[in-house]
Design a protein around this nucleic acid. Sequence first.
RNA 1: GCCCGGGUGGUGGAAUGGUAGACACGAGGGACUUAAAAUCCCUUGGUCCGCAAGGGCCGUGCGGGUUCAAGUCCCGCCCCGGGCACCA
Length: 965
Amino acid sequence: MDAPFRPGASTVFRQCAALPRPGWLNSPTIQGIMAYDHKQIEAEWQRRWKEQGTFRTGNDPARPKYYVLDMFPYPSGAGLHVGHPLGYIASDIVARYKRHCGFNVLHPMGYDSFGLPAEQYAIQTGQHPAKTTEENAARYRAQLDRIGFSFDWDREVRTSDPAFYKWTQWIFLQLFNSWYDPRADKARPIAELVARFERQGCQGQDADVLTGDTEEFIGPFTADEWKGFDERTKQMVLQRFRLAYLSEAWVNWCPALGTVLANDEVKDGVSERGGHPVERKRMPQWSLRITAYAQRLLDGLEGLDWPEALKETQRNWIGKSTGASVRFPVGDDFIEVFTTRPDTLFGVSFITLAPEHVLVAKFTTHDRRTEVEAYVKRATNRSERERQADVDRISGVFTGSYAKHPFTGADIPVWVGDYVLGGYGTGAVMAVPGGDQRDWRFAKHFGLPIIAVTEGADVGKEADERKDATICSEGFLKGLQVPQAITRAIEELEKIGAGEGKVNFRLRDATFGRQRYWGEPIPIYYKDDIPYPLPESELPLKLPEVDKFLPTETGEPPLARAKNWTYEGYPLETTTMPGWAGSSWYFLRYMDPKNEGRFASPEAIDYWGQVDLYIGGSEHSTGHLLYFRFWTKFLHDLGLLPFDEPAKKLVNQGMIQGISMMAKVQASTKDGEEHYLVLPPDSKGEGIFERNYLVDHVLLREGKHWINEDGAAKTREVPAFRGFHLSGPSIELKPVVEKMSKSKYNVVNPDDIIAKYGADTLRLYEMFLGPLEQSKPWDTHGIEGTFRFLKKFWNLFHGPEDAFNVTDETPTKAELKTLHATLKKVTEDIPKMSFNTSVAQFMIAVNELHALRCNKRAVLEPLTIALAPFAPHIAEELWRRMGHAESISTAPWPQWEQRHLEEDSFTYPISFNGKMRLQLELPLTLDAKAMEAAVLANPEVQQRLEGKTPKKVVVVPKRIVNIVV
RNA sequence: GCCCGGGUGGUGGAAUGGUAGACACGAGGGACUUAAAAUCCCUUGGUCCGCAAGGGCCGUGCGGGUUCAAGUCCCGCCCCGGGCACCA
């Protein structure tokens, strides 16, 4: 009260708002207003939240639940950069918002702490991966804490913790002890399959049982034969049905990493991590039968609120195609092929087998043997990358055998060609050069006959792959349209027993064993080389100590180095699980993280249910997110989960890119030392190359980026920049947007931002940058805007000398309008995840309230609650200063009211032929007719009409008036 | 090649078919200051006419179309990003 000019107290002030402020207001004493001390406030509230357990979450069946989950991080040695928290900030806003709305919110965090980098580091330094993992996790935790997340850390999980991986191993055992029943379309205990074999045997590969399509054919056997099998044979047969199984299979072997990789871990023929070459190799291998779930994984996408692009990626990856299976007899054997175009059967002029095809050797005639064997050897030794690299080179060899066409009985030559993939379908194709470009090129290359299958095709030039054509090849399909011909061909195939309609998937079973140390041990032991599951009582099977984290001299995985790596004298499995094992079910453990008797109690699972909102990067589309769904469906089949999809809604946050500063650099050697001269970006000449400059020490001047001697000196402290000198007093640098990466010197550390501006500013700025889903560059300069906003917000509550000053006066209509417009916008934006527009609205509100000199509790209190999810520390502090003892997180969400937004007049844009020409304020009480009259009566409108009568006047109440002349 | 996204000022971006460019950065000008920082005020899509007040024209990747009205809807292209790809 001692300050006569405190904001909001003077009507004179309000009227003067638009005028320049008198100079004395800017005097140093009044400058004391600037006392928003983010450092002190944030440290204080982070301490309180921790001490008071503000965000500890109980299982409370009386309250509605909401489960917001982030994809947990792999704690790498590099720590977090500003891109990492983007999704966490978004999920934290939703979590906090939902708490205000009365939900019991589960918002946990943990670490995906098994993985390659810790092990690579261990190999180099001899440090145990558990130690580096622990250190890295602690560092992550400290960084995350500084951002002020409302995670319930009491529920933290780590996949490398034995108490956690005990249950990963337990789920593995359930997979091992299950088979997939295609009739019931679900997983069932393997014991039921055994009982069935004892009862009725097995018809081999039929519709009643499902085997993986990467395995060899299983011959039929009777119940009596089954009973007569020895233990070994029985177990070998059962392996072909288990959902976790050991088989001899083609795998992606990465020599550099010394391990096998799943398909999603290989990109363009090199490993996703590290970019090392990948070979195809045949070896015994643990796999998970995800293919059994292909159709359900595809169908399940329908009901999910996931990004369309991501669902499409999964659909592509699953790769369903519908067609027919056709058998071509060869002597007393046959070749089975899969085709999507059985309508082109009369155009088949040869058959091609993949080099890996099991029947190649059998069908090769004596005189062709040498040539075929040489070809097969050459083809299978080529790495995936080599194979993909020269797709254009055509190679193949004739086996010397002929197959019989099922309809015409004609002899069809059997070839081997590496354009046919061993891993897809049956590894054999019926070649129709007239209808398939790949077959066409092969035929052309080897001079094989090309038969036209469709009317209007010019097969001399290329194959005709149209699906809206008419069949013209001789036979009963002639004259039919393609779709009808497909149906008809399948009918005929089924009639003569030469084939049937079939669905094929591109999805492969997932290789599950890794020849590495730092992963979950697979709970299996071997008796007479037959794998047996470890009893549950033996779990967790803890990782043993080893002398080195390297393979043994004989090439066995690191676990083979462990002493006594046995169970009751029998050797234990030495491969470990892949990185994605723990992340396939971790969301369940958060529900009941300390449970020692189960992976989670049924009560906890029933209460928390599906994840309501899952946020993470789109790079997990075909890996994690597919396994995550697969395991959920499997546990559902066993009756352990009431739902069969893990996450209802999923959002992919975009990447925050870094801005690299490019300079032209010229290298020279002087006194045996290297020197680099930094040149302006337009420099040209010999020996000049581009180089990223360290971003931190670059200046912004007149919208351009510069480096001067001062910045260069600081940069020189970084070893990579030693020996750098500027060619002038300051050099302009060229900004380039790229992925944030240490090697590009464009990484921005959130700790630095927080130290300077505070966590609330960081949170607001990351949200303000643009739509969450979009990738966008980080520009530290822009952060000033959100920082200023928070200072202005703070100043609404404070008078001179930082004296807290909020009144209980009744707010004006204008103030209430600002408040309610903001509440409305923010309440509508949060569920849409449109946080950038929310922040913009808060800025508008503060600008308006500032101009109105509003410091009224009735306005500022609800506004503070609305801001709390975004900027929780400043909100807590102001809330406390407004006299509240409880955390603001307990305050109910303020509701907006329409009545405060309503006006009695509206300023209409008046347009002529769609072009806005003037504005006219009209009362909202007028109806369309009265409005038209009022508009036309306006002198300015009259003047523009120049006496003409308008053709038409369009009046849209509360929107626009358009006059057509 | 196929399938998804997406092209708006100097920059990040905003716009239920209804005033394009909210909000912010940057830039320019000004106030305060010995000065700087901080803060505050004004201007800021391009262009043309005008001393000014003001006004005209162009403008959301390109070309058409629907509509009183199109960044938004439809058709045809171009470019950028992502996914799949010798998948039969």
